[in-house]
Nucleic acid binder design. Structure first.
Lengths: 254, 254
DNA sequence: CAGTGGTCTAGACCACTCA
DNA sequence: GAGTGGTCTAGACCACTGC
């Protein structure tokens, strides 16, 4: 037959929608500009709102859009480059680091963390919560787990206000042999989402850092970064520090 | 009034569903076991299929589930730890690295890449495509961009089969000053998705590596890793290499 | 209060895998 | 061809923001 198989693999509508929207974003919109609302956009493209939303969700995941309930959808600025190490041989909480301590409790760590620390699953560890801000917005939250055995000199009677500083101070007295990092995709738990100004379940990059001392894991930090707004940079080697503020975005051909 | 505000913040159904499913996964299912189909699950929980799917999607994103069209939904194994550097001062394609070269073309790089390389937007660069496998499945694809200026000794007449090896060979003759990495969230383009055995749009971790030589960026690699199955590890410092094969998963309390 | 994005429903059809 | 997940629709209501 003469059928030339023009479109045997019709791509999904939301996928095509995405490319149309990306083109529009690149050519007709400025950063911070507000898009028409979802109902209007869906009508304009002749699709159901759910389909339009599927496209918007992916674009938000890719850091191209920012949506806020009750407000609207805006064009997002390029992702920020956030340095996550190596820490050049220093403990967290060293003077001048990018984190702000917001509290500290003593409680059992999650099973996965206790596993890495080598502590018992129900053993209480110092848990310091910290927040990292850049450009006026919170980009990450962190839980730093420090077993009691790693800070033997810590006094027993501490006011809540003194707890976190004391743990960090004791930590700095320990010799740090090195550290180790892993990055994976996660979704924000309710508590983290709140501090990151996102909804629960939002995509986050989870950075797990192991701090070694005396051949053991002396502390573990689990940091969750907003995946929509952050690009994590690992400044290995003594190479130049270019901050890459490209005018263009990822726009590879399919 | 005596109303004690029992549930002023009703969490979404899909969110609650997720926690129920995670508990079930942890207690009643084995890795690789196949779940009931979506229509049955939705009926069992008394929700619409779309709502059930919203929960499954997040669990798949978190690497807890694996869904395959025409087959079913299975319980995923823990994420693989994949080492992504630092490269200990060696170029890509060194003997013994984890990648398999699948082709090489000479074409204009995406704008974002040309920006980093410092080449003209329409300047053709050598583009080597590679694939990384672990445990019998493809976990990442990579495009390595090498400007002509970085491999001046490359002969002009190359068969397609010789192209990639020749580029890598020339590269190895260049002195490598250091490298640099950034990680961000992306979604798989059609071509990458195919090689990763995922659907287009699947969540991926994009690792951008800059290779420095002579004070310039001599090459750039853009690698996309399956976000559902991979945990990227950065083995900084000479610290011990623990491969962390925890029996327990992330299970932090809300 | 009007307008926004977030959640949810109850269907339908399609693309794919495998027996 | 039966059964699976993937896409899509046309509604509805809710939670939140800001005027």
């Amino acid at each position: 037959m003469g059928t030339t198989q023009l479109e045997n693999v019709p791509e999904p509508k939301y996928w095509h929608l995405k490319t149309v929207l990306v083109d529009a974003l690149d050519s007709e919109f400025e950063v911070g500009e507000i898009l028409p609302n979802e109902r209007d956009l869906a009508a304009r493209f002749g699709v159901a709102r759910a389909t339009l939303r599927q496209a918007l969700e992916q674009l938000e995941l890719e850091g191209r859009l920012q949506r806020r309930r009750g407000v609207g959808t805006t064009v997002a600025p390029p992702r920020m480059g956030v340095s996550v190490g190596p820490s050049s041989g220093s403990w967290p909480g060293a003077t001048g680091d990018a984190w702000r301590t917001v509290g500290c409790v003593e409680a059992a760590a999650p099973a996965a963390v206790a596993d890495v620390l080598g502590t018992d699953a129900d053993e209480a560890v110092h848990t310091v919560r910290r927040v990292r801000s850049m450009g006026g917005q919170s980009v990450a939250t962190e839980l730093l787990y420090v077993p009691r055995a790693s800070v033997p000199g810590l006094p027993g009677d501490l006011t809540p206000a003194d707890h976190a500083p004391a743990v960090l101070r004791e930590l700095h007295a320990v010799e740090l042999d090195g550290d180790d990092r892993a990055v994976e995709l996660g979704s924000a738990r309710a508590e983290d989402a709140k501090q990151l100004d996102r909804l629960p379940g939002a995509a986050v990059l989870v950075v797990t850092t192991r701090y070694f001392s005396g051949g053991r894991v002396a502390a573990v930090a689990v940091a969750t970064y907003r995946a929509d707004t952050c690009r994590l940079t690992f400044g290995d080697s003594g190479a130049m520090e270019i901050t890459h503020h490209g005018q263009e975005r990822h726009a590879a051909a399919s």
